Amino acid sequence: MQMAVVNLAAGQTVYSEAGKFLFCSDDVVIETKPSQPDAPGQPQGQPAGAGGFGGLLRGAMDAGKRMLAGESFAFQHFTTRGGDGLLALAGVLPGEMRVLELDGATTWFAEKDAFVAAEAGVKFDIAFAGARQGFSGGEGFVLEKFTGLGSLLIAGAGNFVDINPAEYGGRLRVDTGCVVAWDQNIRYGVERVGSLNRQGVMNAVFGGEGLSLATLEGDGRVILQSMTIDGLAKALAKNTGAGDKKTGAGMGGLFGGSAD
C-alpha cells in the first residue's frame, strides 16, 4: 500500500477527506471544517459567487451532497505555522496513488472514495451519473468531480494502468469495479453483457462480470485499477478463519493447546 509524503510550504493549504491523514510534523496545523479551503486569491470565507447567508447555505448544500455520496461531512485542512512542514496521507485500501495536475481547464471524474487530498485551488464537487449508469454501473449513482488549478491526489485498489481509448479503437469495455478516474474528454456509460439468451446468462452468472460492463469512449485519459472492492470483499469473506482451520483452532479442546 502506498502513501504520499507531502512537503507543505509556508502559505500553502492542503485539504483531505477525513480518515486519509497518517502523520505530520509538529509545525503542521490541522483544522476540521465542513467546507473546502478558499482558493488562492479568493476572499477568506467567501465561496465563489456567494457570501454571507448565501455562502452558508451553499456550504450546507455541498456538505449534504457529500453525505449523499457517502463521503465524509467535513474536510481536514493542513497548513504550517511558518516553515516547511511534513504531512503524510493515504487511501483506505491496499493499492496505488496518483497525482493529477489540474490546469484550470480540465475536469476529472472519479469513483466514490478515490479522493485523498488536494491543494486549495482544486475544487471538489459531486456529479450525478445518469439513472442507467448509476443503477447499473459499479461507480454508483454519484461520482466525484474535480476542477480548478493545482495538484489532486487519488487512490485506488491494486495496480493502476493509464489508457487512452483512442489508441485502441476509441472504446473500452471494463469491469465496472475497475474504473478509477477519467478526464472530461471521455464519455462514461454502461452496457449489458450480451443478450438475454443462454450465452448471455452464462456470461453474467458464471463469468463473474454480472449483467453490465462500463464503457469508456473518446480521446482522453482513463485510469483503471487491477483490484475491485467487490472482489476484495469476497476474497476476505471466503478466507475468513482459514488460518484457524489449518491449525485446528476453533475445534474445541481436542486439537487445541500446545503440541508439546
Score class of each variant (00 low, 15 high):
Ser72Lys: 07
Asp62Leu: 10
Glu17Val: 05
Ile154Met: 00
Met67Arg: 14
Val92Leu: 08
Ala110Leu: 03
Leu89Ala: 04
Met67Asn: 09
Phe53Asp: 15
Leu93Phe: 03
Gly134Cys: 08
Gln2Leu: 15
Ile126Glu: 06
Ser258Cys: 10
Asp103Ala: 10
Asp260Ile: 14
Gly210Pro: 06
Asp103Glu: 10
Thr247Leu: 09
Asp230Trp: 03
Glu111Val: 04
Ala204Ile: 06
Arg171Tyr: 13
Lys20Ala: 01
Arg98Ile: 07
Lys112Asn: 13
Gly253Val: 11
Asn164Pro: 05
Gln184Lys: 04
Thr247Glu: 10
Asn159Ile: 06
Leu172His: 01
Met61Gly: 14
Ala155Trp: 02
Ala9Arg: 15
Asp113Trp: 00
Lys112Tyr: 07
Thr32Pro: 04
Leu152Thr: 04
Phe146Gln: 02
Cys24Thr: 06
Thr80Ser: 15
Leu86Ala: 11
Lys65Trp: 05
Tyr188Lys: 01
Glu17Ala: 07
Pro47Met: 01
Glu191Trp: 04
Ser35His: 09
Gly150Cys: 05
Val179Gly: 01
Ala181Ile: 14
Val190Met: 07
Met202Asn: 10
Asp125Tyr: 12
Asp84Leu: 15
Glu217Leu: 08
Gly231Ser: 13
Gly231Arg: 03
Gly220Tyr: 02
Gln46Arg: 12
Ala74Thr: 12
Met227Ile: 07
Asp84Cys: 14
Leu86Lys: 14
Asn159Pro: 06
Asp162Tyr: 08
Asn159Phe: 10
Met61Thr: 14
Ala90Gln: 00
Leu224Gly: 01
Thr147Ala: 09
Val161Thr: 05
Ser226Phe: 00
Val14Leu: 02
Asp26Phe: 05
Ser212Ala: 08
Glu17Thr: 05
Arg171Gln: 12
Pro34Gln: 02
Ala117Gln: 00
Glu167Tyr: 07
Ala4Ser: 11
Ser16Tyr: 02
Leu236Trp: 12
Pro94Thr: 05
Gly134Ala: 07
Ala4Gly: 12
Arg171Ser: 10
Thr13Phe: 00
Leu87Tyr: 05
Gln36Pro: 05
Gly220Asp: 03
Tyr15Ser: 00
Glu139Thr: 06
Ser16Pro: 07
Phe206Leu: 14
Ser16Glu: 03
Gly64Glu: 13
Asp62Glu: 14
Gly54Pro: 09
Cys178Val: 06
Gly104Asp: 08
Val222Ser: 01
Thr240Ala: 15
Phe53Cys: 09
Thr106Lys: 08
Val116Thr: 01
Thr80His: 11
Pro43Arg: 09
Leu68Arg: 12
Ser226Trp: 01
Gly121Tyr: 02
Glu96Leu: 07
Ala131Thr: 06
Phe109Ile: 03
Phe73Glu: 04
Gln76Asp: 15
Val142Arg: 12
Ala110Arg: 00
Ala127Tyr: 04
Asp38Gln: 11
Leu196Trp: 13
Met251Ala: 15
Gly138Asn: 10
Met202Gly: 11
Val222Lys: 02
Val116Glu: 01
Asn203Ile: 00
Pro40Thr: 10
